[in-house]
Amino acid sequence: METFNVTKEKKKKNRIKRVATEQNSAILSIGRVKKVAIQLMMILAVVIYVLPFYWMMLKMFRTSIFAHFPPNLNPLSGTSLSNFVQNLGSVWSFGSFPRWYFNSIFVTLIVLFSSVFVGSIAGYAFARLNFRGREMIFYTVLGTLMIPFPVVSVASYVFMLNIGWLSTYQGIIIPEIASALNVFLFRQYFLTIPKEVEEAAKLDGLNPFQIFTKISAPMAKPAFAASFIYTFIGSWNNFLWPLMVIHSKSLYTLPLVLNFFKGVNGIQIYWNEMMTVVFLTLLPTLIIYAIFERYFVEGISFTGLKG
């Protein structure tokens, strides 16, 4: 066990060294003082970026509803686990909070799986299958990226109203599924997989859908990871569309709950409970982020730079 750790550590060090020499020759030419200064700047950036979240976390463990001046950033003053349990309890029993939490999870999961499925099969078809008008259809689909959702949202709202989908799950979910970005991401990824891999399967008599599910899709894990993450974030954080389409409180999703909770006590926000709601909203995002952090970065460079 011990030796294993040591070799692992060594390997890691070597890797860092290699990366440093290969990709960043700049680092070799900088002095000791500059190295320290740069690391201090990184830490400063992290402190600035983390501070608001840090205060939020502390506030969840405190009982006072007020924001005090000066802000108390001492993690040991006034905080306790029982305060947190108490805050959590009052938030959980507020309105129909468990139902709202369920709504968010339910809506996001369905959007997630349908959008990734629809996007991946279409992306595969655009990358691999020959059919009449393929290029034209692809660029038309891509063109929808230029139509910002908020701009068509009023008409979508009226459409939902006319077909009786206001304040229904399908009304929130189905218009969110079509994502040109997912299609684009998958198409680009499938284009990078060598065609020869599929040729053998084709000769074995597999139809294109079987080739997709058995051969190509398993090879496209990074594309799936990236599109899962971005679709998750987009749907979980979506505010404008649910705001328009949900008029019954029982169907609220978490961003609507946040907005509602903010104003529920008039001008005074109950900060300890508010921050607990904020945290509960953030929690699934943070868990997914912690697991898939690598793919976030890949996803951005993938869709962004090739766009």
């Binding site: 139509i147 949202s153 459409f159 079509a178």
Partner: peptide, 24 residues
């Protein structure tokens, strides 16, 4: 191949036409 091509893009096209082009 082309038949499958159309089948695989059909759900996407349906959604885009109904929920993006039509509202536009």
């Amino acid at each position: 191949e082309s038949r499958y091509g159309y089948i695989l893009i059909a759900p996407l096209l349906l959604l885009i036409v109904v929920f993006i082009f039509f509202p536009a």
